[in-house]
Design a binder for these strands. Structure first.
Length: 244
DNA sequence: ATCTCGATAGTCT
DNA sequence: GACTATCGAGATC
């Protein structure tokens, strides 16, 4: 779909935020199950009355007892939120310049979390372009991206900045944090109380909650690579890497 | 389409 | 000092 809608806000009417906030009980379960079931749910961020939202289309489970997990070597200042209660955020800095947003799962004190790797923009798309590619400045963070705008004419949805395609907006864990203005300030915050919340998914056309969900190996890690704990909505254009 | 590489800063050995 | 749950540019096919 092109989404070249007539709606100037760029909201796709078929992909609205209409679900209830996911309760803490949703997160207090097996981390792999939660990772799978988060596909199709809606991540929402409110900043000064402005809403940015997207359908989750890619996740990864990180369980405390496998070596790719940040919790594997125990609690520290950085990963402390992982050992807090379920339904809270764990946000950390990676490679010195990007943040990654995770959801704490399972019993408190253990250290399970789901990395949100990609979302499909639903609401506040103009704001996402602004957060990612500038034209004003970020909402909360001073991380003004100075991305060399390659001049390319692309499909214009609302707010499309300088030839960047909407698929580049949130198709990766670092990208979506920039687009949503999620920084380490969000680390440890409740995902039930906000300002970042996750909502039950709304059925897509046809009634299904999501399209088919595919499990693959996780990306960007060097340990426990055999575990197929990455979940992707099949065929979605907004995933970080296509499923092969 | 697929690759290699550099940026950049916090965490851990 | 080494490593990192990334990204985007540029080269190459």
């Amino acid at each position: 779909m092109g989404g070249a809608g007539s709606d100037p806000t760029g909201v796709d009417p078929d992909l609205n935020v209409s679900g209830e906030v996911l309760p803490v009980e949703f997160y207090e379960r097996d981390v792999v199950t939660v990772a799978r079931e988060l596909i199709g749910c809606v991540l929402r961020r409110e900043t000064d009355g402005t809403v940015v939202a997207g359908r989750i289309v890619e996740t990864e489970a990180y369980r405390h007892d496998e070596p790719a997990s940040h919790a594997y070597t125990g609690k520290s200042a950085r990963n402390a939120a992982m050992f807090g209660p379920a339904g809270h955020a764990y946000v950390y800095l990676i490679y010195g310049m990007y943040e990654c947003f995770n959801v704490v799962c399972g019993p408190a004190g253990v250290g399970n979390a789901v990395l949100i790797r990609a979302v499909e923009p639903v609401e506040g798309i103009a704001r996402m372009f602004e957060n990612r590619f500038g034209s004003g400045g970020g909402p909360t963070d001073g991380a003004t991206d100075v991305v060399q705008a390659r001049s390319r004419t692309a499909g214009n949805i609302a707010g499309s900045a300088r030839g960047h395609r909407p698929e580049e907006l949130t198709s990766g864990p670092g990208k979506l944090c920039r687009a949503f203005g999620i920084t380490r300030e969000v680390d440890g915050m409740s995902l039930v109380d906000g300002p970042v919340t996750i909502h039950a998914g709304r059925a897509i056309a046809g009634g299904a909650p999501t399209r088919e969900i595919v499990a693959t190996r996780r990306i960007g890690i060097s340990k426990a690579t055999e575990l197929e704990w990455r979940f992707v909505e099949a065929g979605n254009e907004y995933v970080s890497r296509r499923v092969r």
